[in-house]
């Protein structure tokens, strides 16, 4: 049958759901082994963080879409968690191959890493669902269209109180680690990347300024380089 925007969106959702094991709301045995190999086991911290972020996400989703949609928010959060675990496992496999280490204690106990990774997984889930309301141009889908706009990036950053700069760090590794992402979703993540680079990362309070300051201080003792164009 011809590919309509709605059919394309439905296929993306089906692919996303089908691709994620229904038991994936818990870490796989492989991922559990990575946790156990850590100097400090991150399992409890990860579980607690997910519970806390889930309690934050659903009400905010309800605020943006409507109180009768909180259950959809929970559903999307659960899909996001499954994608988060799947991508985390794939990222660690690549890192193990690249660095020849199995102890990722520092990374796996870094709260910012987990929040950024989950935020990226949720952005993918929501962009997959919102594809239908964006492209549909309204036709009887008024509420969905409004919701799409409200839930649009950088909505997730505000929900998780996450800096754009930290979110930016996971995007490329996320795309590398999840080869089943559709071209539309990759393009969406690239749009988020550009938005961060051009605008959001430069807002007051961004950790980027602190990083630049530290780099400058560290560089002050070294020989000054000729400014690049």
């Amino acid at each position: 049958p011809p590919q309509t925007p709605i059919r394309a969106a439905m296929n993306s959702i089906k692919l996303l759901r089908g691709d994620l094991p229904s038991s994936g709301d818990q870490p796989s045995s492989k991922l559990t082994t990575y946790f156990k190999n850590c100097t400090v086991d991150p399992s409890q911290g990860i579980q607690k963080r997910l519970e806390m972020l889930g309690q934050v996400f659903s009400p905010k989703f309800g605020e943006a879409v409507g109180p009768h949609c909180i259950a959809y928010g929970r559903e999307r959060f659960n899909l996001g968690v499954r994608l988060y675990y799947k991508v985390m496992e794939s990222m660690l496999e690549s890192e193990e191959k690249r660095l020849s280490v199995q102890n990722f204690s520092k990374l796996l106990n870094d709260s910012t890493f987990h929040t950024s990774l989950l935020a990226c997984a949720l952005e993918v889930v929501m962009a997959t669902y919102e594809e239908s309301s964006f492209k549909n141009g309204g036709g009887g889908h008024g509420e969905g269209e409004q919701a799409g706009r409200d839930l649009c990036f950088p909505w997730i950053l505000n929900v998780f109180d996450l800096s754009a700069f930290d979110f930016y760090k996971v995007i490329e590794s996320f795309i590398k680690a999840e080869p089943t992402l559709s071209k539309e979703i990759i393009k969406h993540l690239e749009t988020c990347e550009n938005l961060i680079m051009e605008k959001i990362a430069w807002r007051t309070g961004s950790p980027l300024f602190e990083l630049l300051k530290r780099e400058q201080e560290a560089g002050a003792t070294e020989q000054a380089e000729t400014p690049a164009s």
Binding site: M91, R98, L107, D110, T112, K169, S173, K183, E190
Partner: peptide, 21 residues
């Protein structure tokens, strides 16, 4: 078609981006 431009080198990964060794 759309191709994402990967900026990270082969020797770089998520560990470096979050300051981990």
């Amino acid at each position: 078609s759309h191709d994402y431009h990967f900026g990270l080198e082969e020797h770089e990964g998520i560990s470096e981006l979050f300051d981990c060794d």
